[in-house]
Amino acid sequence: MSKKFDKQNYKNTVKSYQPKPNLFLNCVKAFIIGGLICVVGQALTDFYIGVFGYSEKDAASPTAATLILISSLLTGFGVYDKLAQFAGAGSAVPITGFANAITSAALEHKSEGLVLGVGGNMFKLAGSVIVYGTVSAYLVGIIRYLIMQ
């Protein structure tokens, strides 16, 4: 007779012991923090348009660069990971999450030297985003170009 904790049943049986993440609460936290980061982005964009006279399109670059600088600094101060435990996707999905991935990897591997440690490990976590973004943009770009011909 097969028992609850036998090898074939174990994985299923164990599910009831594993606390489910509070999905609703996590989504609320992600929504609020993610939304706030985007609001900061909007404020930065308006600032660059208003004060420096950038066009809407051109303001995107300094906005991104500023958000990235803030995120890198918060990572260096050891604050970003605490925020991320609270916000989950709310801090990972915005461009700030990308900057944190690069900065945290670079910072962590400082002990292996500036070239092999910092330089060699910087893209450990963010690399897949760049790779998949580039590959998909290539494919979609080629397809769209062919269709337009």
Binding site: A60, S61, P62, A64, A65, I68, L69, S72, L73, T75, G76, F77, G78, I95, F98, A99, I102, T103, S104, A105, A106, L107, E108, H109, K110, L114, V118, M122, A126, I130, T134, A137, Y138, G141
Partner: peptide, 25 residues
């Protein structure tokens, strides 16, 4: 392909590098 994203990638690399140089985990 990297024209519009250049500022983002370049900043991330630069600031990531600088933070790594001046901070400790």
């Amino acid at each position: 392909i990297f024209q519009l994203t250049s500022a983002g990638i370049a900043s991330a690399i630069l600031f990531g590098f600088l933070v790594a140089v001046f901070f400790k985990p």
